[in-house]
Design a protein around this nucleic acid. Structure first.
Ligand SMILES: [Zn+2]
Ligand SMILES: [Zn+2]
Ligand SMILES: [Zn+2]
Ligand SMILES: [Zn+2]
Lengths: 176, 176
DNA sequence: TATTGACTTGTGATAACATAACACATATCT
DNA sequence: AGATATGTGTTATGTTATCACAAGTCAATA
């Protein structure tokens, strides 16, 4: 049987890799960005970024808050939301609206538009480049006179690993 | 300088038009779709669709619920959510995640992918064709082996009318 | 006709997500 | 030090969404 997946290059979010390297380089980039722009990457903010960086999936604000509380930071929602909002506002994290969650940015500091692939099975989230998508969206909007500020581009589906796993199980999956 | 907006073709959501015509034709289409597919467009469901069709902007579930309650339907959130979920599942309405709201579909029954332009000033929402965007997104996903189910493409910004209004005000709005 | 089974609508309760308002602390600048 | 802006923590509340269960509707069929 031919494997439809085998000839692709899976995103780091959906495959085994040296994640410590992801964390180190991204955190380093984030720190450089903060310095360059005079942002105050305070203890809470930095810790939230580190927590998000632990996995290639998105975390809800309350999950982040729980971690913060355990570690001696505040126990109330605004503590998490403020740090998360700071990170998002400064391009160090992204908000995934489909699942009300947040994820660390893969390329902080580099001007880019991103789209997100959200696996409905394992909850992994991959950030993929979306400059072309953004340009196309912008073109569509311009023809109606609409001026785009920010865009949200998200896809829900199944990542290659979960897809392969599903192939083994022979059940028919019902669609939504 | 020429007016950057004047030569565009504004979307119905952002300009004066015969809205009764919008409502009539869309509702008619929706009814045809329901009949063809054996869907039960019950009183609540139909009423919710009519309520959404009243304006070219999105409504929150609780706003819909309030209307339903006034009109003798149930008073509890599931009443609204179930009807809305039914409409979304069957392509008669769309969910706008950026603002946690719902809007009637412009072209029920016609297979299409849509993107949405959400005006942050007047809360108008325009549905625009997104088959090209979807194809591009799909291409990006495929290169990572990801299989897309549903996609969310939304832009927040300013509609042509609000943009024009803002231009007039810029001289006066220098001070707060 | 009466039974059945799938589906729909309603309810109360609760979960999950997000912000308002205010007090106090800490950094920055003069 | 004093003035100003920013950040952190708190309590309280607002907003969005789902769960679990009872009762009603409807159509096929025994
Ligand atoms: Zn990694
Ligand atoms: Zn997966
Ligand atoms: Zn209209
Ligand atoms: Zn507008």
């Amino acid at each position: 049987m031919s494997d439809a997946v085998s000839d692709t290059e899976p995103h780091a979010a959906f495959s085994q890799h040296d994640h410590a390297h992801c964390v180190a380089t991204t955190l380093q980039q984030a720190e450089r960005v903060a310095t360059e722009r005079g942002l105050r990457l305070t203890p809470v903010r930095r810790r939230v970024l580190e927590i998000l960086l632990e996995r290639h999936s998105a975390m809800g604000a309350y999950d982040v808050l729980e971690r913060l509380a355990e570690e001696g930071f505040g126990h109330q929602p605004p503590v998490a939301y403020r740090a998360l909002d700071f990170l998002v506002a400064n391009g160090l994290a992204h908000r995934i609206r489909r699942i009300n969650a947040f994820i660390a940015c893969d390329h902080p500091g580099e001007a880019h538009h991103a789209a997100f692939l959200v696996c409905e099975t394992c909850n992994g989230v991959a950030e993929i480049p979306a400059d072309g998508l953004r340009a196309m969206l912008e073109a569509g909007a311009r023809s109606t006179g609409f001026a785009i500020g920010r865009a949200t581009i998200e896809a829900a589906g199944q990542c290659p690993e979960c897809r392969a796993r599903a192939e083994q199980g022979t059940d028919n999956e019902a669609q939504e």
